[in-house]
Simulated scan of single mutants.
Amino acid sequence: MNVFNFNAGPSALPKAVLEKAQSELLNFKGTGMSVMELSHRSKEYEAVHQSAIDLLKELLRIPDNYQVLFLQGGASLQFSMLPLQFLKEGKIGNYILTGVWSEKALKEAKLIGETQIAASTKESNYTSIPEFSDLSFNKNDAYVHVTSNNTIYGTQWAEFPDITHAPLIADMSSDILSRPLDIEKFGLIYAGAQKNLGPSGVTVAIIRDDLLAENVEHVPTMLRYQTHAESNSLYHTPPTFAIYMLNEVLSWVKDQGGVEAIEKINKQKAKLIYDAIDESEGFYTGHAVKEARSLMNITFNLPSEEQNKVFLAKAKELGFVGLNGHRSVGGCRASTYNAVPLEACIALSDFMNSFRKL
């Protein structure tokens, strides 16, 4: 059966990566073992580990004064880990709310220290991204936190504010590696891998060296960024297979022409589906305002909930997977991450156009 995978995460992986992993599954690099069976201290695995770090630095043009860390616990653990490091007495964790995940990040920070909401679009049901002019800062901000892309509501920051008084920290779980980034705008970027980087199980953090110099003696050892930076993310057994897959995905991105080429294709994919929405004469209604639309998660509704159900049932029959909206908001959602091929988006656009004419 031909399947078009639009799952929001864990999501599609490049077919070429899956095929290579399959071919190496029982005998990695002549070891006679799967990469999952290798010691994380072996030279074969350490080569994979370092390659993944080096490729990410190359693809995102990460400056030398930043470290790449491989962590666990997903972005959800980062919601606690970062305020534990930086939200000290007399400091404020400043959060820009653009969806459920930024709300969850704020909730965890509140358990640790003082927080503030720099701006929020909750009153409009998160259909947009705040204007830079609406952001409210404090001289005592420990950091300013932003969620770059919002999987549930389908909005995305097109540009990021220039923050100079405190580090800008970003959860980029759902759009990292989908477009070029000015890394130097950020003190810390973190991302669960299961959207654009690889399978679930590994979390990438990109952290500036000066933030690693913070006094964190009060923080449990495993929850310190310093611990993982000092050991090249080998302080304890890392998720070796997930990092192996991450390395292969990064190699695939490089083979496609790098992040710039990936962004170009992502724009083509998203345009196909947004055009089907915009040209439907109101049959499909996008959730996000046009200027805030995500290139990764395209959210929309049909005229009624009953028609949503019929659409999703028919789509499933035809091999479209993962088009249901998040359980908290309903509707429909197409997640067009890097590994989703252009052909899948053409097929979905064609289906949407034919369905509304039934």
Rank of each mutant, 00 (worst) to 15 (best):
I346Y: 08
A118Y: 04
E58M: 12
Y45G: 08
K290H: 10
E281S: 11
D255W: 10
R333V: 07
L55A: 10
S280L: 10
A229Q: 10
T151L: 15
Y284F: 13
D134W: 06
D278P: 09
L77I: 10
S136W: 03
K43L: 15
K195R: 15
V202E: 04
L135M: 06
S280W: 07
I129W: 00
S349L: 04
K269D: 05
T240Y: 06
S51K: 05
G286T: 07
K107V: 04
L358R: 15
S349N: 08
E24P: 03
S354W: 09
G331I: 07
V68Y: 05
Q156G: 01
I176R: 09
A205P: 02
L323D: 02
Y66A: 07
A313W: 12
M81C: 05
D64C: 02
Y95G: 05
D162G: 10
A191Y: 13
A315K: 00
I92A: 02
L318D: 12
P167Y: 03
V48T: 01
L25H: 13
T98I: 07
S11F: 02
D210F: 15
K107R: 14
N149V: 10
S280D: 09
A193F: 15
T121Q: 03
S233Y: 13
A21M: 15
K357Y: 01
G322R: 06
F241S: 12
G93P: 02
S233L: 14
K104T: 11
Y45P: 02
S39R: 14
E291D: 13
P220D: 09
E131L: 12
N2R: 15
Y337S: 11
V253I: 15
R356D: 06
K43Y: 12
